[in-house]
């Protein structure tokens, strides 16, 4: 009931508040910068004064693999940060301002209220990540050579899924909190926990961070997969959204 109406309002909001444009631009710049950095870093190192003789020759010539790992690194840091920043206020802001109260006295179910936010953010990141991917692909083509587009696409798909985990978790935190400040605190806390536990040896295999490694390995031709992390990620998204729904249902706004 009314999902499409609320969703289209959310998308218009992403556009009118310039959030979509900003994230698109920032992601595109990171996409462009990744292969550029991979290409330039060795050259900058070489040109540094006081470099011991012989070391300059030891610095490896950058390859497409360096461009890919630079891209994955940037996305796993700044992409996730953006996902957090963009999502953590989504519900808390509406509660704080009172617009949530206003809307819920009209025929908007609480589930649609949450889902429309999640899908609007998902579309925002789909578009923004596409910009980043396009930028990265284009500069890599200019600086190195063409990347295999199918595995590049698959890698970006895995990264998008990882972003969505953070979007869903941030929406959950945003629903749990009563103010934007508290929501931000919770979301960053969740980020630290996910990053920390995800770095542990065995448990880490189930964490969304593995999706980035899997994506990179697709490009580098190694055969690492991370199916457990993929299923866990999808599960976390669903559980976070359903949990947020249950919490919102019990809250009096």
């Amino acid at each position: 009931m009314n999902f499409l109406n609320v969703f289209s309002k959310e998308m218009t909001e992403q556009w009118r508040t310039y959030r979509l444009l900003i994230v698109m631009a920032v992601m595109a710049v990171f996409g462009l910068a990744s292969p550029l950095l991979a290409k330039l870093t060795p050259e900058i190192l070489k040109s540094m004064p006081g470099l011991p003789p012989g070391l300059a020759d030891a610095i490896p010539v950058p390859t497409i693999a360096d461009a890919v790992s630079q891209y994955v690194k940037n996305m796993s840091q700044f992409g996730i940060l953006l996902a957090l920043l963009l999502s953590m206020g989504s519900v808390a802001q509406e509660k704080e301002r009172g617009t949530a109260t206003m809307m819920l006295t009209h025929p908007v179910s609480r589930l649609n209220f949450l889902l429309s936010k999640f899908f609007a953010l998902a579309v925002t990141f789909l578009i923004s990540l596409s910009m980043a991917a396009l930028g990265c692909w284009y500069y890599t083509l200019l600086l190195f050579k063409a990347m295999p587009w199918d595995s590049f696409l698959a890698m970006n798909g895995l990264m998008l899924l990882a972003f969505l985990v953070y979007v869903a978790v941030s929406i959950f935190c945003s629903t749990l909190a009563n103010s934007q400040g508290a929501a931000a605190g919770l979301a960053f806390g969740a980020l630290v926990v996910i990053a920390g536990v995800g770095a542990l040896p065995r448990i880490g295999e189930y964490f969304p961070g593995q999706l980035f490694n899997w994506g990179a390995s697709l490009m580098l031709g190694t055969s690492t997969t991370a199916w457990p992390a993929l299923w866990v990620s999808i599960g976390v998204i669903i559980v976070a959204l359903l949990g947020a729904w249950q919490i919102l249902n019990r809250q009096e706004l």
């Binding site: 631009a25 595109a28 500069y139």
Partner: peptide, 14 residues
């Protein structure tokens, strides 16, 4: 030029 075009587009749009 090929390097500048995307940066210019982003800059102009923003």
């Amino acid at each position: 030029l090929p390097f500048l075009i995307p940066v210019l587009i982003i800059q102009l749009v923003l």
